[in-house]
Design a protein around this nucleic acid. Sequence first.
DNA 1: GCCCGCCCGTTACATGGTGTTACAAAGAGA
DNA 2: TCTCTTTGTAACACCATGTAACGGGCGGGC
Lengths: 245, 245
Amino acid sequence: MSIPRILVVEDDTEMRQMLTRYLQKHGTIALPATGENDIKKHFDSGRIDLILLDVMLGEESGIEICSNIRQEHNVPIIMVSALSTDQQRMSGYSVGADDYIAKPFNADLLMARIKAVLTRSRRSASLTHRRRQSSYTFAGWSYDARTSEVISPAGYQVALSQRELALLQTFLANPHIPLTREEIVEGLNVTESAPENSDVSGRAIDMLVGRLRSKVETNPKRPQMLKTQRGVGYVFAVDVVVTDK
Amino acid sequence: MSIPRILVVEDDTEMRQMLTRYLQKHGTIALPATGENDIKKHFDSGRIDLILLDVMLGEESGIEICSNIRQEHNVPIIMVSALSTDQQRMSGYSVGADDYIAKPFNADLLMARIKAVLTRSRRSASLTHRRRQSSYTFAGWSYDARTSEVISPAGYQVALSQRELALLQTFLANPHIPLTREEIVEGLNVTESAPENSDVSGRAIDMLVGRLRSKVETNPKRPQMLKTQRGVGYVFAVDVVVTDK
DNA sequence: GCCCGCCCGTTACATGGTGTTACAAAGAGA
DNA sequence: TCTCTTTGTAACACCATGTAACGGGCGGGC
């Protein structure tokens, strides 16, 4: 892939300059924009790989802009905001943002998330899936990606940790496909928009799978869903129904 | 596919109305029915894509109705019931229900299952997208490739290792055909999505066959199914019935 | 700031699957 | 029947994986 072209939509001049400089220093092309009109111009004049969008743009609402962009383009969007309540986060995701980051943010964290989103969209066909507000059903279980709620066939809500959720999501995106441990790690890095989890060591995935099994398998000793492929990795061995909301 | 037409068989008026309204809101055509007579009328008057069938219908037994329908039509059936014990579930499946859901149920979950069943039946209609989701029957045994379950004639589930399963699958795909050890190794490499098992050494297949025999032959000393072709290899010497799901 | 609890990776050990080896048993041919 | 070859079987060893226990790190509450 060529150098990523990132559109920085931010009305505060200082902030905008800071961001563009930072992005350029990190090997990307940063295109400054202040509002919806600018965005359109940039779209007309060339490829855009990602949009960094401030939620509060004086007059205009970032949320609305995000929603508009989404209707026309399939470009990844990261929302940036001083507001970080779940409420805000929700409305960001609900209009199709791929990630959401709160001000003030650590610059390196931002870079990591940008990388994650770019990687994700590059391979969205294979390992990963867009983070949409889908809900999944599998073997009587249901998982709502929006609320991260996991419901057992008996109707109980099961509490999974973040990492376990990310693992589950990775499997749900690749049912019936044997995944190597490396692929799973990649999947986790993409699903969680956390700073690149180096995670080089060996058995961590095994542990994680074990812990997920203990929570979602009826009989963890004889797993029905999270099956081991000896010498390969793991497979999610049940059908998954995805319901877009 | 056109809009799915779903027959809702439920004697409780409130429940029936609730269900039909919900289904209609989700893009399906819901046809209300209260008993077996209604069902027949609907079958005569048009296409039915799926039946949602309450187990407890006052006088009539849903199980019986299900069984009757199955004898005449090949329509998918989802049983709905307040009883969710495994006992009940079993008798539901044993008369041919495609799924079983317990009251009270989450409406979205129900919708997801409906979608799953409809997708499944659509898939089986088109020859192209057939995965190896077949189930096999041979000499009283059954093997479900989807769940990898092997059931003995007596009804016991037999646990086979991955390699043994792959071997069984290889034989099931080539009944009555003598296979050399090399051909079997190839078959295993195809069946298992494992890294090319070089498997150069000699006797491994013999061992594998031996182990499979010890699990599926009544008298492993005098094998009836996995017969040895001296100087050649092995044959799977019973008829196999393949049932696509 | 301190303490507590949770997440999660690490480590060490247990378990189990699978190929190898060795030897016994069964066939085939002389 | 004797002998050679092929196959069956049990014991073993190796390695991938399962699992329990530990501990560092981090965030929340006081």
